[in-house]
Design a protein around this nucleic acid. Structure first.
Length: 433
DNA sequence: TCTGGGGTCCTAGGACCC
DNA sequence: TCTGGGGTCCTAGGACCC
């Protein structure tokens, strides 16, 4: 017996979060910006209708934004993360089989819910999430995840669906695929979409009707799976237990390019400290540390430089000192003078559960004094002025290693951030009666 | 002047071994 | 003079996702 997958997708999620706490934004064009206020990463339907593209740089979008009085927000990940948890909690009221796929999407297994019809369940879910959280969602329901994504796209694009589109029956499947651009198929990115269009494949239906061996040859096993999934053959299961993370990254673009080595070292030290903190939050250790740097992608080719280097830790660790030291050693090998660095980052590799890692008798221990020091550091940094896990803490940590410096000339730009309504006592909304 | 951040998987090719 | 082939591991790069 075949399964039934539902994809639940929050509409314009970041914008919807802002609207929950400021209902006056309803019906108005709203956009949310990336870290550093660099470009547009979320748009309300009204903003989309104005022609503001996803990923448009703020300086490019500004004339349109001003002309139409678009409300502009810096991203507020503390708020979005918390709202996401509430949405997922509402979904898990329906079934324990929930895969949290991203901050604003989840797959549900509805195989056991056939009695009332899938569409009815979709509408129930939609209503409940909205009632509990204020977030509007759309639902796509089908026999495979890829078809559920496709159905969700229809639900979102066609208001007459009421935000729910059920593709579990065979009828309508070809129409739905014919109405879906090839680039809108889950698993087909812009590169393959271009290649497919060159070969006359413009829609999901064209791809569905293409020859299997040809797809396998041109697109590998991943493409072949997508092709099968469109035919209703499930290749992807629900993953309710998120697999253990293998790497973690902390990186930022700089508001102003950095040339000075000491300044870059300070930035990398801050990234390393945050990365080590992420490890401790997840009860993990890393085996090696990569530092990477890059100049602007938008400058002339002769000015571009990007490089990365990896340093192994003497023994797996989540200690800020050890991680920072390794990151700075890696940076030393790749730093070149007279380059304008626009971005840098630290990646931690070979992650393992803390405590299960093979100890190295000859290296500083992760436990004992070092471990207690890290606990104290985390406790103090958590208090009042930041939330672990949020990307929006603004580097406000009071305690940090000396290498992180104190100037922070490269601090993030966040000119339009809304309050952290739900996670910071000092920023609770005030009710006026 | 100003263009996000954080992940995964697959594949091809080289090194090395038997 | 003849100069294989298969397996494994690693890495870099490319593709994808949100």
């Amino acid at each position: 017996m075949t399964g039934v997958f539902a994809l639940i997708d929050c509409n314009n999620f970041y914008v919807s979060c802002e609207r929950v706490f400021d209902p006056a934004l309803e019906g108005r064009p709203v956009v949310v910006l990336s870290n550093n206020d660099g470009c547009v990463i979320a748009r309300s339907n009204e903003a989309k209708a104005l022609g503001i593209g996803m990923g448009t740089a703020l300086f490019e979008a500004r004339p349109l934004l001003e002309k139409h009085g678009v409300r502009v927000y810096s991203s507020n990940y503390a708020l979005y993360g918390d709202m996401s948890n509430r949405v997922m909690a509402a979904l898990s009221e329906f079934t324990p089989n929930v895969e949290v796929y991203s901050i604003d999407e989840a797959f549900l297994d509805l195989s056991g819910f056939r009695r009332l019809g899938s569409g009815r369940h979709g509408r129930d879910i939609r209503a409940k999430v909205h009632r509990w959280t204020g977030i509007p969602v759309s639902a796509g329901i089908a026999a495979t995840k890829t078809l559920a994504k496709l159905a969700g796209g229809i639900a979102k694009r066609y208001p007459e669906t009421g935000g729910v589109f059920d593709l579990t029956g065979l009828s309508g499947r070809r129409d739905a695929m014919a109405a879906t651009d090839i680039g809108g198929v889950w698993g087909i990115g812009h590169r393959y979409a271009r290649m497919l269009r060159r070969n006359g494949i413009e829609t999901a239906l064209h791809f569905h009707d293409a020859a299997g061996p040809w797809v396998r040859k041109r697109m590998g096993v991943a493409g072949a799976r997508t092709w099968l999934e469109l035919k209703g053959v499930a290749c992807f299961d629900l993953e309710c237990q998120p697999p253990a993370r293998k790497t973690t990254v902390v990186s930022r673009s700089f508001r102003d390019a950095i040339e000075n080595e000491e300044e870059l070292r300070q930035a990398v030290a801050v990234f390393a400290a945050r990365a080590a903190e992420k490890l401790r939050e997840g009860g993990l250790t890393a085996g090696s540390v990569t530092a990477f740097v890059a100049t602007s992608r938008f400058g002339p080719a002769r000015h571009q430089y990007h490089n990365a280097a990896t340093v192994a830790l003497a023994s797996p660790s989540n200690h800020t000192g050890a991680v920072t030291k390794a990151a700075l050693a890696a940076l030393k090998g790749i730093f070149r003078r007279r380059r304008r660095y626009k971005k840098a980052g630290v990646m931690l590799l070979d992650l393992a559960a803390a405590g299960r890692a093979q100890p190295n008798l000859f290296a500083p221990s992760n436990d004992g004094r070092g471990g207690r020091l890290m606990e104290a550091l985390d406790r103090i940094n958590r208090k009042d002025w930041g939330e672990p896990g949020s990307g929006a803490r603004g580097w406000g940590d009071l305690l940090h290693y000396g290498a992180a410096g104190i100037h922070r000339g490269w601090r993030m730009k966040q000119a339009y951030r809304s309050p952290r309504y739900t996670t910071n006592w000092n920023e609770l909304p005030v009710a006026r009666g």
